[in-house]
Design a protein around this nucleic acid. Sequence first.
DNA 1: CGTACCATTGATCAGGTTCAATGCTCGTGG
DNA 2: CCACGAGCATTGAACCTGATCAATGGTACG
Lengths: 194, 194
Amino acid sequence: MNNSFYNKLQKLLEIENPFFDELYSLLQCKEIQKNDFVLQENDTCKFIGLLEEGSMRTFYINEKGEDVSFLFHFNQQIEDLFFTDYESVLLGTKTKLNIQALENSKVHFITKEDWNNLSNKNVFWQYFSKKMTEKIYLSAKKRVEHLLYYTPENRYLKLLEEKPHIFQKIPQKYIASYIGITPQSLSRIRNRIN
Amino acid sequence: MNNSFYNKLQKLLEIENPFFDELYSLLQCKEIQKNDFVLQENDTCKFIGLLEEGSMRTFYINEKGEDVSFLFHFNQQIEDLFFTDYESVLLGTKTKLNIQALENSKVHFITKEDWNNLSNKNVFWQYFSKKMTEKIYLSAKKRVEHLLYYTPENRYLKLLEEKPHIFQKIPQKYIASYIGITPQSLSRIRNRIN
DNA sequence: CGTACCATTGATCAGGTTCAATGCTCGTGG
DNA sequence: CCACGAGCATTGAACCTGATCAATGGTACG
């Protein structure tokens, strides 16, 4: 058991013991090699992953065969910590998402089954899982707002402001599709701004 | 008490009695005149609304002063039935949203307080509110996908396919900003397609 | 009947896309 | 340790789509 991750996670999730230990005991640790997939299109997602070290990316392949970034995962902020297709977990549907390690990473999994059991176990965990769902709803809502209300240039500036750490680790071509533009356009926007 | 709405709502929410009656008794009915607002920017949203008759629109005013549609509300599908700023309800923050009646409408409100009490009352309602949160998460996620993966033209076609009823009641200028384009472009897209 | 609002259409503009070429960096193998 | 190759960022040129500005026409409502 890695104490520093244990502490970090407890702090981020804001759960007291003994509850936190109950959750932590369900986690299974795994090393993921760079470029390896933890989820691929047409899988049914049966886990929720938590990132201890490294970085990952969730992306789609759209109708034209283009790679479109949906989320980046780090071990910093709570909304970046998790990687899963929650839709597939909730509905049992096949996923359209891919989740791939951007570097060698250390991760922890909780199975869908354990998560569901925990979520419905009692008032505490039910409340906790609802709060988690609310958080991911709020970040999805924010994403919609950004896409609707800002120009590509402003989306770039907002991202730079809100998640500067993304630019340290993630290749620009992946950031471009996250913003909804091509790598060339992102390069020109950066050029234009300086 | 309007029986047809009572029945419709029960069917849409899929709640058995006596639970459904418990929820229904908390609703307060109100008539809203066309163009009246039930929520305005800088309010703190203290309700969840349900539409019985008519139609409403949730929109932002962005930095440039443009009106951008966020959601349309009808009495058909469960995800359109509700109008609120759930973010403002959850966090107690001031809203950036406006919700306005597109025609004379009949609506029902549950207060934030009653909703919170109900949600935490027991296992049943906690589960129910969790399921509701999951539903709105899924629709927000879908919205992000549409904005990221489809061109404006394909977004129009998708909307036409998935929510054709929108085009019966909602002026095109409002639909345009929902898709993320100007009314002129929407007009040209329609022209191009025929 | 008149006004106000909305959809449409035209002309021009701007920004992002596409296709293509170049140069840089990093990792690998000789 | 150096040379090579792969992948990525950058840049250029032409293009295309949607934005903007402006004018027209239609429709609904007072």
